[in-house]
Design a protein around this nucleic acid. Structure first.
Lengths: 335, 335
DNA sequence: GTGAAAGCGCTAACAG
DNA sequence: CTGTTAGCGCTTTCAC
């Protein structure tokens, strides 16, 4: 145990630098030497010391991921982002250091101690306090979400504004004239969380453009909240026929409540969910939905991050085009 | 930027070792020197380089956490474990490197490259393939869960066997004679996941000891699965009056299905949930429950891990005593 | 195509 | 109580 690069060099009868170059591939090595080295590496079970490598090369091969492990946000979706990031990171030969959202100082710490090569940030708010911190760091950062001012950082997210428009347009095409958006919990909105605001903007714009009547209600992520929000919608817009739901946790309760209030889905009310595809298909009634490709977004975030580690590329913002899949919860407007 | 310990030493007019010792507190420093150093550290915004420190001290101040980010396991509970671990880790001045369960090679990697000081492992199976790997490493490891043979590793978990007994005993005291356990999904059982098996064992034992009639049904983590399992129970034991549910996701559907089948809760059927307290209280009907203290378990795991980093203490197994809290879902047996 | 050697930034003897 | 210095294990010039 504790074999070093020198042990390998000795065993292979070469110099340490040759071993290093065989491992990194940063300069041509003759086939025979390469093989002797590779053999020695295998025989000795050699593993380079991460700290030593980081010290000498200023590369850690570690990414920081700041995830909101609060309970009020949707845990399922978060998890999908996280697995997307971790999986992609491994594909780029990186590990992931997990930071929780309540620890803004953690960013400063892991960055300035050179613990990571880049940072990926989830759950971005419009005026996120982490953004100014991030721009001050030497490591590249990628935001999953879209702040009001990216300030030169890379961003990636689903185009929620387009998603809102897409959902409304689908309902409009089916002849619906009175529609509602059931959105994120109040707390999320009050933080001005980017995706919630963009979703609302898209919804509102398309409602106006299509000349529809539309209302918006926040929705808490539990049964009571879902029931209350549905009732408020029915109160404000009694003859509503189209519902866009952007709240994965409330989804089952929303549909159940509609039924309890005597509205059949999709006969009386059509429902478009905005959520990961598997959530939409796992409901008792498969829901027409605009997919949130959490896994893909996580992967893209890692790709953008690693790309900026290597080369000093400029930052960019990538908004993924939303896709709507029709399932059993939408139909032509009644009457 | 990129200030080193030598910069600090120069600025404070002391030697590098003095700076190092001020920072680590590993030897007494006079008040005046300490203050000069601390001032210089603050003025220069000095942050020790993690790699250099790891290289020189063989300490990374990083913990590896292997979490099952699969979808079939309960995401909410996982999240609570993870936050428990991360929060506790910070309290012990450690960061957390996140590994996913499908990456057994990751253990070997982060350990042999000296990327972490210790490893914490979740979702342990009876004959977990990671256990033999773990014993071969130089770093201490803590299992959250209980394999058939801990092989000298530290373990911590809720005492699920006692939890199963406790739930049954509670029902027995209320006069229930026919009880059922709705457990984990089939896939979890087939992996021989430790907690599921221990829960079943405790349930079965207490049913026998108390002379009750009892049946067990696995339960998938979705609505259809919950409905099916409830129906199977009602078929096998038509006059069942007590139900123990160890599946957080299915919980709401189970209660709803009971109602739909004409069984009032708790008038006709009493329900004891085994889940985190907040899950039990957030149901439409607050459920009597045996708490799964995920946050605490995560914290204890970190404490055990860090304790074994410092001193070469022997391994130990800690099983937390379950606590049952009565809420609105249990009552005296009918008739 | 390969080697020798100078660091990377820090810790921990050892020496006062 | 403080300073000097020898590494920790690797990468990367520079030299051949």
């Amino acid at each position: 145990m504790a074999t070093t690069i020198d042990d390998v060099a000795r065993a292979a009868g070469v110099s340490t630098s040759t071993v290093s170059y065989v491992l990194s591939g940063k300069r041509p090595i003759s086939a025979p030497t390469r093989q002797r080295v590779e053999r020695a590496v295998r025989d000795l079970g050699y593993r380079p010391h991460a700290g030593a490598r980081a010290l000498a090369s200023s590369r850690t091969n570690v990414l920081a991921l700041m995830a909101p492990l609060r309970v009020d946000v949707n845990v399922n979706v978060i998890m999908q982002f996280v697995t997307g990031v971790v999986t992609a990171a491994r594909a780029y030969d990186h590990d992931v250091l997990l930071l929780t959202a309540d620890e803004v100082a953690g960013l400063e710490r892991v960055a300035s101690r050179s613990m990571v090569d880049a940072l990926v940030m989830m759950d971005i708010e419009a005026d996120d306090p982490r953004v100014p911190v991030l721009v001050g760091l030497r490591q590249p950062a990628v935001l999953i979400g879209l702040p009001r001012d990216p300030a030169g950082l890379s961003c990636v997210d689903l185009d929620f504004e387009a998603a809102g428009r897409l959902a409304v347009r689908h309902l409009a095409r089916l002849g619906h004239r009175r529609v509602a958006l059931l959105g994120s919990p109040r707390a999320v909105l009050e933080r001005h969380t980017s995706y919630a605001e963009r979703m609302l903007r898209g919804f509102t714009q398309e409602v106006a453009d299509a000349g529809l009547e539309g209302v918006f209600e926040p929705c808490e992520s539990d049964m009571a909240g879902a029931v209350a929000s549905v009732d408020r919608v029915l109160e404000r817009l009694p003859d509503v026929t189209g519902l866009v739901v952007h709240n994965e946790v409330a989804l089952p309760w929303v549909v159940a409540t509609l039924r309890e209030r005597g509205r059949r889905v999709p006969d009386d009310v059509s429902v478009v969910a905005v959520c990961p595809a598997d959530v939409a298909t796992n409901q008792p009634l498969p829901l027409t939905s605009v997919d949130i490709p959490a896994h893909t977004i996580g992967k893209v975030a890692v790709e953008m991050a690693t790309a900026r580690i290597e080369a000093d590329q400029p930052a960019e913002t990538r908004l993924l085009t939303p896709v709507l899949v029709e399932r059993a919860s939408t139909a032509a407007a009644p009457g």
